[in-house]
């Protein structure tokens, strides 16, 4: 990754492709770094974001380079968090909703679990997205191939 280091200013500047790294993820990673560095963002969220990190403590060339590496790592971690949260949103909403609706009666379920209707998963929310739409995707693929 290309970067520019300005040692007297104690800062490193680098560029991120907005298509790979959405601005929300950059905000998220920047947030984690706020207690360690001063962060300035510039550029265009549709094309390329310019990140400038300025060490709160005096840093040498290697340390500034390391800071950039850590930021990049945090960005990747953040992206993973965002995607996992998005993919699991429905099932998490269901779990919290079921827990709240059923109130505080933790031990009220019958021993054989017969009153646990929600375990039937009528909405299929526990089924991975890929499995759920696999059939449709396969059909569509076949159709596409036929039409070609």
């Amino acid at each position: 990754m290309k970067f520019q280091i300005n040692s007297p200013k104690n800062q490193i500047t680098f560029f991120l492709d907005s298509k790979l790294y959405p601005i929300e993820a950059i905000y998220g990673a920047a947030y984690v770094f706020i207690d360690r560095a001063y962060i300035f963002l510039d550029g265009d969220p549709q094309k390329e974001i310019i990140i400038c990190l300025k060490g709160k403590k005096k840093m040498n060339f290697k340390e500034l380079e390391g800071l950039q590496g850590e930021f990049y790592n945090e960005l990747l971690n953040y992206l993973l968090r965002v995607k996992i949260a998005k993919r699991n949103k429905k099932v998490r909403d269901f779990i919290v909703g079921t827990a709240l609706v059923s109130g505080s009666n933790i031990f009220d379920s019958s021993p054989d679990g017969s009153d646990n209707d929600y375990l039937d998963d009528p909405l299929g929310i526990a089924v991975p997205w890929e499995d759920k739409y696999k059939e449709n995707t396969a059909k569509k693929k076949k159709q596409d191939e036929t039409s070609v």
Partner: peptide, 23 residues
């Protein structure tokens, strides 16, 4: 593991861990 989720256990665990919400 998403495909091995035990929803019953998860819901009960959530309720128990957040018992204060029901006070």
């Amino acid at each position: 593991i998403r495909e091995e989720l035990n929803l019953d256990q998860y819901v009960k665990g959530y309720k128990q861990k957040n018992q204060f919400l029901f006070s």
